[in-house]
Amino acid sequence: MNPSATGWIDKFGSEVKDHLEYYPDFRSLYGDLKKIGFVYGINIRIPRFIRTEHTLSEDEKAKINLLTALYFTHRLERKEQNFKAFLEEIFQFYQSLKINQISFLSSLFVGKKTSSQLEKLIDSRVYLEDNVISKTFNSTITNSLLFIDVLLFKKYLDQPHADSYAYAQLLEYIAINITYHALNSKEKNRSDEKLAQLFAASLTFIDSNSEHFDGSYREKLLENHSVWENSYFLDVACLTVWEDHSLEYKESEFIFGIGKDLGFDHVEITRALDEIAYFFEKNGETIPFLKDQNLALQFYESMSKVVNKLILRNSKRLQKELSESRELVALISKSAVKDLSPEERKKMQNQLIDIFKSIPSLAIFILPGGAVLLPIFIKLIPKLLPSAFDDNRVKK
């Protein structure tokens, strides 16, 4: 599966059908999403049942984790195994949040297929910026409040006629206030500022201006009775105070005060702190917003990652295509002396078609500006490239 190429949601649907009972309840889903970092907004890895051929970037992990969370939330709430039914309902959900608009130009490349449109929507939810230049210069481009989408979808499935947009504003308001007041409960450092900027940049439904930062959020916490929303708010608070690997008395007082307002006892709050401490101990060196780099170094590192990813992935694909071509030569040689079996004839036919497909793609690539034109042609004609280049091809 390749979340940066078209067809990855259909590929996900073909793989998840063999793992429908992977998460027996929402508690197990939430626990695993926290271990892999999705709840914290820091995507370290993806669920173990999902197979990928390449090393994934953080935004690609975020895409897979978001889709996994949304799918299994739907599966647990609806007891539904039909992946197409999930796609239709998640599309309606994003429509209720007023973030399902796809431009006319985008629709030319995406088409009318629900899964293709959902790929575009998930892209818009995962990336903080829609500007290639800003993506290149920023080491962190992934939305850190994506788990709010999951909480909103769970609420939507329970109460489809409720005002989803107003509820989204409420959850974001509480989350950003918890972050703001948690940071004010400690002595700030540079990492704190980066974390605050990251959360502020991730807001979708409210503006990150000062008028939202007041004490009334504590009243709204007392009114909230959803255990999983409260668990998320507690984890956000723990993330905010623990990123510097210490917990001072004042911070502890704030955390245990928030935890009490959310309805948790001392043991549950301590467990949440222990889990975030373990997460940072295990993954601290790979968390992007903790890296203190100047602009030039960020640019170099971002470009290096892109180039390395392209070289690594395409070298594997070329190697695969060439190995298939060697097999084709063997089959042609064999056909000169004896008849091939139906399976061998079918294999030879498919490999010949693959080679013929590679000719127009190579011709486009060597044209002036071909490196820019080729991705556009691939969007318009997804099967232009050989099968070795299509990570999301679903075997019939």
Rank of each mutant, 00 (worst) to 15 (best):
Y156I: 10
G370M: 03
P24H: 02
L340R: 09
S164I: 00
F93Q: 06
E344F: 06
T136M: 07
S96M: 09
I102P: 03
N2D: 15
H225C: 02
L66N: 04
N230C: 11
W8Q: 02
L222H: 01
I364E: 02
L203A: 10
L384G: 05
E253Y: 04
R27Q: 09
K120E: 15
G215S: 15
E129N: 11
L108E: 09
V394K: 05
L145M: 13
S57F: 07
V39E: 04
S134F: 07
Q169M: 13
K135S: 12
L67S: 03
T240P: 03
F91W: 05
Q92R: 15
S4M: 06
N209W: 07
M348A: 15
K155D: 12
D390F: 01
H161M: 11
Y167K: 12
K79V: 06
T240S: 12
T73L: 08
E187N: 12
A296D: 07
I258C: 01
G31T: 10
N230T: 07
N230G: 02
K155C: 00
K135I: 08
D390V: 09
A363P: 02
K395H: 11
K17I: 13
T73Y: 04
I378F: 05
F72R: 01
K155E: 12
K338M: 07
L97I: 13
V241R: 00
W8Y: 11
E129Y: 13
P160F: 04
L310F: 10
L87C: 14
L367C: 12
A85P: 02
S96G: 08
Y94G: 06
K188H: 10
D339P: 01
F93C: 05
L198V: 09
D265C: 11
S116N: 15
S57R: 12
S333Y: 08
N184K: 13
P3C: 02
E301V: 05
Y173R: 12
G370Y: 04
I102H: 08
Y217I: 09
L203Y: 08
E211S: 14
E301A: 08
T114H: 09
N189L: 07
Y173V: 01
P160W: 05
Q159R: 14
V267G: 03
N82W: 06
D261Y: 09
H266M: 10
Y127M: 12
R45D: 11
I206Y: 11
S139D: 07
I381R: 11
N131Y: 04
L247T: 06
I269K: 04
S4I: 00
Q117R: 15
L328M: 13
P382E: 07
A272E: 12
F109H: 06
H181S: 08
E229D: 10
P386D: 05
V132S: 14
L310S: 11
D207C: 08
S106H: 13
A388V: 03
S96W: 02
N184H: 15
Q81R: 13
Y232M: 06
I364L: 14
N314Y: 12
N230S: 13
